[in-house]
Nucleic acid binder design. Structure first.
Lengths: 187, 187
DNA sequence: TTTAATGTACCAAACGATCGTTACAATCAA
DNA sequence: TTGATTGTAACGATCGTTTGGTACATTAAA
């Protein structure tokens, strides 16, 4: 049984698509837009993709898988729950703010994708978020804070940071520190 | 000089458009979709709207204006900075979670709208956020927290609540309380 | 080693569907 | 009778996708 290996050009297509999906959203990004970005005609992309829907799902899956691996690696061996959560947040923020990463296609923007696609995305994302669910479960939180709500707020904050953050007054490290401070995570 | 008064049918159109924009985003909502929702053909909508872009801007302006009024009214006379901020947050959350409100068209989803539209939306939103900027300026925050960052995180959290909140275990009041607790606002 | 066959990577062009929008005619209330 | 409200029908543009072909590289057969 053979395994499909992504070629160089294929990676280009995925990266370009990811960048455009992240910048304009799914519905506002056309196949021809993506093609133009890599110097191909729209129709030619179908040598590498099965459909626009499948392309989005593929990027989304890849992004979450890669993100999960990086996060798990970063917190491996960390005993202190608070520090583990802090590290996980820091890495996720890094991923979300990296414009060159495949990981950006907004983990939240599910509104513009077709119903059938959404189901797959949600399923994949729930699996990803389990990492944070475990971390939040173990970490000490302010008194009276619901852990499920806290997890959602924290993840939403990290995932949407790319919509407002622009390098300038504050660097990535400082933003991460600020977020952790607001969310009472003692790193 | 005469003033344009919105008729009953016109309000219907605005409400339907707002609901669809909020649910699917700008790009994924068609003029014909909106028409269908109010029992009109797509073309007939142009008796009430100038263009799809202008419709979105109009809804957005209206929503922010109405929201600003409600918030200002709610905090009028409140002396304590923390309680004023808590009330403002509570009202904004109420607005964002009300499915019948014109106010939902996601204040954040600017990615799918044309460049020319975006400029107007951002300008209008900055004016709205000034209310919160003032409140955050006056309120006591945890040590070491940047007020600008805090304001952005708090507003993003409130504005995106509608993407994940579903009535069930927790009611609106409890969600508001939880958010305020996470953001260290002593109401 | 040459030749034939196959596969990869694209372009050119078009398909039908849908998009925002407009022109114009029909309807209907005042 | 006029003006507000809607339908009918179409415009050109763009959408995702398919078809069919070409140039080139790789592999297999002679």
């Amino acid at each position: 049984m053979t395994v499909k290996v992504a070629t160089l050009r294929e990676e280009e297509v995925l990266a370009a698509a990811a960048a455009l999906f992240a910048a304009r959203g799914f519905a506002a990004t056309s196949i021809r837009d993506i093609g133009e970005r890599v110097g191909l005609l729209g129709g030619s992309l179908y040598h590498y993709i099965k459909s626009k829907d499948a392309l989005f799902i593929r990027i989304h899956d890849r992004a979450l898988q890669s993100a999960e691996e990086r996060i798990r690696a970063a917190i491996a061996g960390e005993e202190d729950p608070s520090r583990a959560l802090a590290t996980a947040c820091r890495v996720l923020l890094e991923i979300q703010l990296d414009p060159a990463s495949l990981t950006m296609p907004l983990m939240n923007d599910f509104r513009a994708v077709p119903e059938s696609v959404r189901a797959q995305l949600v399923e994949r994302r729930d699996a990803f978020e389990q990492v944070f669910a475990d971390l939040v479960e173990a970490a000490p939180l302010p008194a009276g804070v619901d852990r499920a709500v806290y997890r959602i707020l924290l993840l939403t904050t990290l995932n949407t940071a790319s919509t407002w953050y622009r390098p300038g007054r504050l660097g990535l490290d400082e933003i991460a520190q600020q977020i952790l401070r607001v969310y009472s995570v003692e790193g």
